[in-house]
Design a protein around this nucleic acid. Sequence first.
DNA 1: GACGACACAAATCT
DNA 2: CAGATTTGTGTCGT
Length: 495
Amino acid sequence: MGPPSPTIRVKRREVFPYQESPYFYPTQQLCNLFSPDQSMNYNVKIAAKIDRGFFLASNDWTCYRRNYFQLSASFGIQGLDSSVHSEVPCLLERNGDLLAVRSFLVCIGAQIQNGEKVIELVQHTPKRDKGPQITPRPTHIRAGGDLNANSPGSYVITFERVQFKTATANNGKRRAAQQYYQVHVDLFAELESGDLILVAKTYSAPLVVRGRSPGHYADNDEDHQDGIQGVDSRHHYRNDSVSSMSGAPLGSPVSPGEYPYYSGYAYGSSYPYQSLTSASHMAHSQDAGYYNGNRKNSESYPGSPLSPAAVPHATSHAGESVSPDMYSPAGFVGPESPALSMGRVSHSTSHYGGSNNSYNHYSSSYNSQQHNYDMYRDQDHETQMAGLRIHSPSSPKPLSVASSPSVTPRRQSFSSTLISKSTERSVGGSTTRKSRSISLSGTTTTTTVSKRPISNSRPSRTVPATPPNEMHSRAVHGVFSKDRIPESPMEDQHL
DNA sequence: GACGACACAAATCT
DNA sequence: CAGATTTGTGTCGT
């Protein structure tokens, strides 16, 4: 309990961003889209990426219910140069009829892995408890976004400060089967009538959501170490799975053709995209080849300058390349979700156009009983927009391009409990300093994205990623420090 | 055990 | 570099 010795606090180590975040399965297109002249049948792809909040524990993508995570999404239409047609004119086939699509929207939701049970997601403002709580809602988006590109012509929507309303059951306990959730990103087409039709969706990897403080899982994590070669819990905690564990991890076969659609890719790339996305000054790197080019497997992400690999797929052995953890959990929610239309929307008063949107209400459930979108109706626009960021050329934001190249993790705490349990809640003031001392270096590879109050286009700070080579070498040499309290703090310090 | 609240403090941002 | 914000998470009381 003593005051943390000054020396204990290890200097933050940079995080090794080679970690990925929960991957996403290939987009499931649920209805046909055609070019206005019906000469082409469009293939839609949703790109999604979860930032911050998750780490790998026992091979499961895990997060804490109370912590924030954010999800960015964009979509593209194959064969269309979205840089030119971001406002894709197209027709949607519904019950045999071809209806004009007025616009597209994306929304995120969650559900239990093997069931339809919807898991509520909530978003907060920076005020947290003090502020309002909202539910992710469908938001307008234009085609052409590229999560990994920092191109100004990218349309990416980011749902920030998202939390699961509830935790998964049986977390970490052996007694019962671990329950999993899956986040899904849905793409809707809004018809002239105002109806929202679910056009496509993509599911994330199965996720474990812990309901209690990290300290409660400490022990478990310690021994649940899986043995993914080369990866130990520590790393998990840090949220940087050395995905280089080529090959599929533990017996989770990847169904052929069902490669996870992971969004992040290799080193650092997962970092700045968000901020940069809107960098208006950035060169126009169109995502051209993105949806067109290499995509043999139908779902690969654009190659990264850093990651050789655009090798996402199964065979990726690339020794040094980071390959996603592509185990395919048994029974993940697969493609046959009811392709339906999400009910009708009422009205059509919303105004799109801007990067902002104020959606009115729509009710319906497109997945059993998805959220009741009516709830949005009463939320004022501001509230609705809180926690949501939309990147688009129309709302360029200044960008403070990176500064120091050190990606430092936000405090690492998953272990503080171990040593600071003694704390007594300060009574009168802050007398008792919780000795949260030992904060080892990294932990959650927090994708540092801007954190101020959300505004549609707020400049984000760019966090440059750690040079890949460095990270890599570390990984290779296993120089990771433990995330948890090291037996000897020094162990972590030097270095 | 899971959750909502409240509180403190570390990490970040300005 | 300091003050202001954000956000992770320890604790309590349910």
